[in-house]
Design a binder for these strands. Structure first.
Lengths: 225, 225
DNA sequence: CTGTATCCGGATCGATACTG
DNA sequence: CAGTATCGATCCGGATACAG
């Protein structure tokens, strides 16, 4: 991005952060993504060439460092201290968004894949059963699909294709319903009672299911309007 | 800006704020600018057409409201509650900038006009003498020029041309020196002692001069590196 | 003088195809 | 998997023109 030619710190920071896609990339890095492929999932629809370009730009201003993973030789992107410190900015941005503009979400803006990806980043590891739990999520509505969450130690994962494991918990719901619960805009229990979200599986798992997730980072922010 | 097609609040907020010039426009509105012409001064080098475009965009998403000033019929731009609430985001952005990237300021990035404009927005009205004080600032260095601050009640103003008043206090200094003091990176007293900044005028005014300003919003942020 | 609209060359973006 | 290369569409910046 071309410089604003201004000394103001807001201008200097904007040159780095206020560029298309960049806040989403930083958000994804803050959420724990390290690999190029993880970033592609967490920042859907970004052209790969642009992702490359943005990563280089962020590297050149000292927000992230590029390292070669030892054994696989794949590039890894690590936030520097300056990058980590962007947490408050991105959080502020997200809180503002949640408070003021997260109401008019269109049906087709809720991406099941991104939802599942977000979920696997927000697992409450301490409350997980010791054995692996496989969750299948079946989404209906404007955007449909089956997705899987492999909840296991040390690292849960999200699958866009059937991983082939036996499924322990089935979640069947409208995509928007899951979205609203995830964003703290609706209660999971209520939606289950109303039948908007259906849970199947062993009773102990079904009961524990809501405790396995920390929900969205922005679920606690109250909304205006 | 085209939608990211994502439900994430960071994405929704970025669609509004993370566009070229927009953070600077919002900053200027938060600092108190209301008129198109004031915004042009506070956001130097923005093409007028682009400023118009951005103001319309911000209006359409409910960040600001456009009102016709009663007697002059000139448009006034007022932040809405949602717009005011962007204060924390812009502040966070600026604090990050001040902390991490405000070091490598080039000589020619320090704009005397913007500096004076910023100063007139940060006057400590309560500590001003009752009578009007006219300050002339003479900048030297990469970007030179004479500017005037009319410190009076109820509204101080900044002049880019000689307003014709008798001058009470003369400030003569290198542009970068003033910048550093303004941004909290150097002490005014020390610079005056070293002769990098010269103050002329009645002793009582010269002594009081530093108390008339609140300095930059980001002057208190400590810098890393 | 203030605010807005229009036009145009160049930079940036988005989509697709290609490479090690 | 992790990028590059290419190319049309869009956006930006600067200039100019215009209306109140």
């Amino acid at each position: 991005m071309k410089s604003y030619g201004q000394f103001c710190p807001v201008a200097k920071a904007s040159e780095i952060l206020a560029e298309r896609w960049t806040p989403l990339i930083v958000r994804e890095l803050l959420m724990g993504s390290r690999k190029f492929s993880e970033l592609e999932i967490g920042v859907p629809n970004i052209p790969r060439s642009l992702l490359t370009q943005r990563l280089r730009a962020l590297e050149s201003v000292g927000v992230l460092e590029r390292k070669a993973d030892g054994n696989s030789k794949r590039a890894e992107y690590h936030l520097t201290a300056a990058g980590m410190d962007l947490n408050q900015v991105i959080r502020g941005l997200g809180e503002w968004g949640q408070k003021w503009v997260n109401h008019d979400i269109g049906q087709d803006e809720v991406d099941p894949a991104l939802l599942v990806w977000d979920m696997h980043r927000r697992v409450e590891m301490d409350l997980l059963p010791p054995d692996r739990v496989v969750v299948q999520m079946t989404f209906s509505g404007a955007r449909t699909g089956d997705y899987w969450l492999i909840l296991e130690h040390p690292e849960p994962s999200a699958c866009m294709q059937d991983p082939g494991f036996d499924v322990d918990v089935f979640v069947v719901a409208d995509t928007v319903a899951i979205h609203k619960v995830w964003m703290g805009m609706a209660s999971l229990d209520e939606y289950v009672e109303e039948g908007r979200i259906e849970l199947f599986g062993p009773t102990s798992y079904v009961n524990a299911f809501p405790t396995w997730f920390k929900f969205s980072v922005f679920a606690g922010v109250e909304m205006n309007h």
